[in-house]
Amino acid sequence: MTTFFLSVALGLCFLMLFSLYRALFGPTVLDRLIGVNAIGSKTVILLLLIGFLYERVDMFVDIALAYAFLNFVTVLAASRYFHKRKGLYEESFMD
């Protein structure tokens, strides 16, 4: 079972690369925000898996909960901060 958990965790890390592409090269700021949010929701699961691998779930579940809270607050604050910037999105339809 440990091997299976390890491979699931590696798969999650691989999926994070997809979201990291969007976070790095997203045409607008809000696209980057979506990428960051997706990475955060994968990290919650990754923390739980690390807890199972180290057999300290009781500790890591708290960290995962705190990370979920933090992720939500990050997205909320960042989107509130960026919604005043008009004209930031001119080049959003480049393709």
Binding site: H83, R85, Y89
Partner: peptide, 27 residues
């Protein structure tokens, strides 16, 4: 509890991002 919180917060986060895009005038 994590799942419950995510189910509660995910629509709110999505809505706030959509609202930011709308106010910025993104078509």
């Amino acid at each position: 509890l994590i799942v419950f919180f995510v189910f509660l917060s995910s629509p709110t986060a999505t809505h706030s991002i959509v609202d930011a895009g709308m106010r910025a005038g993104l078509r």
